[in-house]
Amino acid sequence: MKKLLLALVLGLCSAALAQSPTDSSFSHIYVSVEGGEQYPFGDLVDAVENSFYGGFGFRYTYTENIDGFVLMDYSYIKPIPRGLKIYGAHQVSGKLGLDFKWKAIAPLAIGAGFVCDWVRGDYDDDKIDETSFNKDLGGTLTDNETEFGWFARVNLPLIRRETYRVGFNALWKELWTLPKRSEMLSMGVYFERRIW
């Protein structure tokens, strides 16, 4: 496994170092829609239920073998503990990353980047006192909360045509929350259209 990882890293580095970005940057641009489901990991399996997500994406060529992308998706996440005054939470997740298209595993692409999640609780204003509720479970989500983190993903195009493609994304993210980090896996299908 270590050898495989080492080979992967060296391969990505050698591919990266060989490129000249100025020739390829934005030579192609794609937009996409994506939908799927996300699953909590670690401690989070006791905190939130699985949830569906939907969003859109923007991908651009960065170098010959590296694409950049921006993803934005929405999901409504329900807490597992019962009896909370918060029914659920609206989550908007933004991601900025790079996909490495290593020839040895083509058409699979491996990507990584940073994620920023904005979250706000869903609750009845008239049923809680926001000042004191801040100390109860879910209470901080009565205000806008954001947290950053990082992610890694695999991107597998299943149908590839000149102007569009359909594919599968599996993305693992870690938010830098406290008292512990929050991890989630999302799996979804996308449809992507080439703009130029």
């Binding site: 909370l84 901080t140 909360e145």
Partner: peptide
Amino acid sequence: NELGDMIYQDFIT
């Protein structure tokens, strides 16, 4: 952001 908001950890902390 200063890192370390609870977000979903808030439901179990």
